[in-house]
Design a protein around this nucleic acid. Structure first.
Lengths: 155, 155
DNA sequence: TTCGATGCAAATAGTTTGCATTCTA
DNA sequence: TAGAATGCAAACTATTTGCATCGAA
């Protein structure tokens, strides 16, 4: 299965309020945990556990990779974080409030993040046809981007 | 990136013709290679490298996992096989001619395989909106299946 | 002062690679 | 019989787990 978190997704918009929420739920606010939150919210796009452990390449203090994974799991269970996969390679993590869905070009590898509203028509069509309530947050829509399609137009 | 094969997908429909095609291209037809093809074509749905190495649970002779991976890579390069991912867990392999696309329920984990034609409307809408030529062969459309949606209706 | 959380090390899963040996063409 | 492919072992990447120690509440 794909979606592990138990509660609903929570839309806290910064590391500070995420931290408060954890405390309100009786969880301890350790340095490693605070760092994971800061890294997640500081990043413009989803990051890997390794990048978080490395403190986003030195911009933040580093922490242990095992703790990062443990904290990401906990944050996901609490609906503060979600993870996704874009192609192969390590899983990526984003704050739950980071509402983006993805298109991935299988030719040039480019990832395009779009606002969920842009996919509502697609979602609706899928719901009609299959009764399936779709999202492209976890896995991207794979295919050929406009540019690569053109490149293959004539032979 | 996601799609590694170089040539176009080839629609051979059985292990025998796939084997002939390999020979015609000057590749050797070893026992392990023949077995991989037989396993792939014998299976009703995509199988993992491990399942192939195990001879589909004993129905076929087993072969070495490393050779299975090497052969799958080669078969993919030759457009005879493709691989895909349904949720977490090992990658899955199918004959290139196995034209199915997938819907995955993130709640109950059920995978639904559909004929590509059923998704042409969706594909068209995505092409209009994004200029992206989509396929759901490699990653499934994740979401809530009809059944799980109902279960969440009220409450 | 007590558990929850950490850090380190080792284990696990999936996949890839090196190399001597085997076998196909 | 030459070189392609194999089998086995080791390496590698991503992730998880065990356990003694540490630290937040």
């Amino acid at each position: 299965v794909t979606a592990p978190h138990t509660g609903p997704a929570l839309s806290v918009s910064d590391a500070q309020s995420a931290a408060s929420l954890l405390q309100a739920r009786g969880l301890r606010l350790s340095a490693a945990r605070r760092l994971a939150l800061e890294a997640l919210f500081a990043a413009a796009s989803p990051v890997s556990a390794e990048e978080i452990a490395d403190g986003l390449g030195g911009r933040l203090p580093r922490s242990d990779l095992a703790s990062v994974y443990r904290n990401l799991e906990l944050l996901e269970e609490h609906g503060l974080v979600r993870h996704l996969h874009l192609g192969h390679g390590p899983g990526l993590y984003a704050p739950a409030g980071h509402e983006r869905e993805y298109l991935l070009c299988e030719s040039c590898g480019e990832t395009r993040a779009v606002d969920p509203a842009e996919l509502d028509g697609v979602r609706e069509l899928i719901a009609q046809r299959f009764g399936h309530q779709a999202s492209f947050r976890h896995f991207p829509i794979v295919g050929l981007c406009e540019h690569c399609r053109e490149g293959r137009q004539r032979r």
